[in-house]
Design a protein around this nucleic acid. Structure first.
Lengths: 341, 341
DNA sequence: AAGCTTCTGATAGACGCCTATCAGGAATTG
DNA sequence: CAATTCCTGATAGGCGTCTATCAGAAGCTT
């Protein structure tokens, strides 16, 4: 038995296809009694509109925009590449994807960018700063019916449709567990470097890391966080200082970007193998360092997955179809030398 | 500028749409010169057929079959659930998915099953045994134009379209690296339990594990593999024996199923915390054990991903469209207590 | 050049849904 | 009860492609 069509539903409900369509797409006022009849028929026949046919008929373009930080952060470059790649693929399916770069560290600039694009797109995916000004702009977009998803870093109080990214506190805990186990039984200091403590994801990772570290591995002394501004040169300075100040440093967790700086500092100090170093995001740099043993573990969120997930979410939001939660959960990937993809 | 349609191509090439269609779908003989003209127009306009419209027009059902082992192996149950779930979702897109269980450990039975279904399906995904008899049947299916993908366990010499699963040797190496690091500096014995040494994936994992273990962690003594037949009761016996024979056992890697048996044995011996235990596949059982600390690490391949990947591959194979390699690479997931999804 | 085969063009009718229009029927109002 | 307003039915046309048919054109053979 083939799938039910709109016609079947119309017949079953004793109404015309036009009316079924009106009910399905809220096109015009339909008497409640009729609506109910139609809905009953739909349930009865287990009707599901054919999305392929619907999209063909609507022949509507989906217009989405990705907003990423400007600058040359390695992971953000990966994300941008993923966006461009998907943009190409999705072009076949009438999905137009623009990519914009902006200073996401400035709430005002990011807010203005968000305000400006209102009306141009059906949906927006943004790596956002958690700040009232930004929240305001996000809410304004939602108000006007634009679907908004936050990417990598969330803005919790806002009306964003969805957050596409990992649970950063859990990522921090994961790092701590691995750090603790790798340093099993040893005593010494563990350093923590973040990009900026005004970035929500960094703070959350730090929180998770400290939480597990303090409770489960009291033998390890956690040093106060230092900020590296996600800039490898600054990070290198910070790391070098840390290594210099603490000859008994045996662990290092870099919550943000700037892997290159840490690798540099470790090599300069000749302590690559003495320090267990856990970094975030699998980039060319970290992949290399992982293979040669300078980095022991990389915690990653798959850029390609995130972009595809964001697109799927924006699309279902745009045509009001449900999403499959399980499919849109971004995993916390752990990489050691041997399971690099 | 909107996307080019078949009509645009026809105009550009100075032929009729019928001819363009003949070229595109190899429907009838077309003079080489004409073919070339059409192809040139296609390139010029960068034409890509609208897959939505094509599938709608063809209104053809894709018929696929998944063949899984019978029995109650926890991971296979997860796989089966994933298949059923996807079957439901894909039904909306005119994809019919059947699920069959068979004794995949017997080459003859599996081979016969494969032979029998020839002609009923456009594609088959099977958890297959690497055996000449099976290879034969797979090749026969391919010969008749049925797309075949191997799932979880590969059959290398065969003509299967694709292998959907992880690199098992790499998984074994990953386990070894984690084992080595978790046991950093300690001396003692490490046990290895496999389901069956006639299963390709198990052998490969063992190979990878031993390779890294022997080279990188000479302080650890690797005990000879024992077989547990993927049955938790047998596994429990094997593990208990192992624990009894070796009071200095400090590591255990279970390459196959039967986690429940090992957990049972460890608990019975009261040595949950003394032994670093690495298991495969995230099931309810292993998740629980991971959280309470009996299992230290789970190496997993995502059942949902594998099923979806297999379906995507079968579909593109069926309508001769290319696949995105990067998207179909199944990752080796590492789970500790803190990053369980 | 006639006769034959091989190509090509034109066109109609799906596929399942969307959009729009218009007329007529039902419900509501005074 | 008539005059409105509100709902509904019927239907046409379109989205981009596939499938099928048939007539006529082009190419080849002898």
């Amino acid at each position: 038995m083939a799938r039910a069509t709109i016609e079947d539903v119309a017949d079953a409900a004793g109404v015309s296809v036009a009316t079924v369509d009106r009910v399905l797409n809220g096109r015009a006022a339909v008497r409640p009694k009729t609506v109910e009849r139609v809905e009953k028929a739909i349930r009865l026949l287990n009707y599901q509109s054919d999305r392929l046919a619907a999209r063909l008929a609507r022949s509507k373009e989906y217009r989405f925009c990705f907003i990423l930080p400007e600058g040359s952060n390695a992971y953000m470059t990966l994300l941008a590449d993923a966006v461009r790649e998907e943009a190409l693929r999705m072009a076949q399916e009438k999905v137009v994807i623009d990519l914009r770069h902006t200073d996401v560290f400035s709430a005002d600039v990011l807010g203005q960018t968000l305000d400006k694009i209102s009306g141009l797109y059906d949906g927006v995916a943004a790596v956002a700063l958690d700040h009232p000004r930004v929240r305001e702009s996000i809410n304004a977009l939602c108000e006007r019916g634009v679907a908004v998803v936050t990417l990598v870093s969330d803005v919790p109080g806002s009306r964003r449709t969805h957050y596409v990214g990992i649970d950063n506190a859990a990522a921090g805990r994961t790092a701590a567990t691995l750090m603790g186990r790798y340093l099993a039984g040893r005593r010494g200091k563990v350093g923590l470097i973040a990009g900026s403590l005004s970035l929500r994801d960094h703070v959350e990772r730090q929180f998770g890391f400290e939480q597990v570290m303090l409770h489960e591995y009291p033998g390890l002394t956690l040093l106060p966080v230092r900020e590296g501004r996600d800039d490898w040169q600054i990070v290198q300075g910070v790391a070098a200082q840390l290594l210099h100040d603490h000859p008994d440093l045996i662990g290092l967790y870099n919550v943000g970007a700037g892997t290159r700086g840490i690798v540099g500092a470790l090599e300069a100090a000749g302590r690559q193998r003495q320090v267990v170093y856990i970094a975030h995001e699998l980039t060319d740099e970290s992949r290399r360092a992982l293979i040669d043993g300078t980095i022991d573990i990389v915690i990653n969120q798959d850029a390609g997955h995130e972009v595809r997930s964001a697109i799927r979410v924006l699309m279902s939001r745009t045509d009001r179809s449900p999403i499959v939660e399980a499919m849109e959960r971004i995993r916390i990937d752990i990489y050691v030398r041997d399971n690099i993809p």
